[in-house]
Simulated scan of single mutants.
Amino acid sequence: MARKWEGTAGLLLLGLAVLLDRTVASRTAEKRNRDWRDAALRAAYRRGVPVTVLASRTRLTQGWVKTVVTGGKPPPVDEAA
């Protein structure tokens, strides 16, 4: 009886491995997750969360976060009063 379930369990585990590979580990999934993260960072920045907080919470550098929130353009220069 155990052998009957071994094959079925093996096929289920294989299906799980394929699902995880396609949704978590593939290059397409990594890019999709990065795009979602970047969109969330931009939305938080537009709602007033400072770059320093975004960088520390996501463990990214401030320079990278500035690049993400400005859409790849250099951030605007703050003029001294």
Rank of each mutant, 00 (worst) to 15 (best):
D35K: 15
V69R: 05
R27G: 04
L20M: 09
V68A: 13
T58G: 04
L13Y: 12
E30C: 00
P75R: 06
Y45L: 02
L16G: 04
G63V: 03
G72P: 04
T52L: 08
L11K: 14
K73D: 07
T70H: 14
T61W: 08
A29G: 04
D21L: 10
V49Q: 10
A17D: 04
R34T: 06
R42H: 01
V68K: 15
L54R: 05
V77E: 02
V24Q: 00
D35Y: 08
T52Q: 11
A43S: 15
L11D: 07
A39D: 05
G10L: 13
G10K: 15
R34V: 04
A25P: 00
K4V: 10
P74M: 08
L54G: 03
L54E: 04
S26E: 06
V51A: 12
V77H: 01
L12Q: 13
T58Y: 08
T67I: 02
R57M: 13
G71Q: 12
L11N: 12
G15N: 11
V53L: 15
V49Y: 07
S26F: 07
R32I: 02
L14S: 07
A80I: 02
P50F: 04
R59N: 12
V68G: 09
P50T: 10
G63D: 06
K73N: 10
A40C: 05
T70A: 10
V53Q: 11
D38G: 01
R47S: 08
E79F: 01
D38I: 01
R46N: 10
A43P: 00
R42P: 00
L41C: 09
T8I: 15
P75N: 01
L16C: 09
R37K: 13
A2G: 14
R34P: 00
G72I: 06
L54K: 07
G10I: 08
T61F: 10
D78K: 12
A81I: 05
R59I: 09
R3D: 14
V24K: 01
V77C: 01
L19N: 08
K4M: 09
K31M: 08
M1C: 14
E30T: 02
A25M: 05
G15T: 13
A55M: 14
L41T: 06
S26V: 03
A81S: 09
K4H: 14
P76W: 03
A55G: 14
A9H: 05
A40W: 10
W64Q: 06
V49C: 05
A80H: 01
A39S: 05
P74N: 04
T70L: 03
A80F: 00
A55N: 15
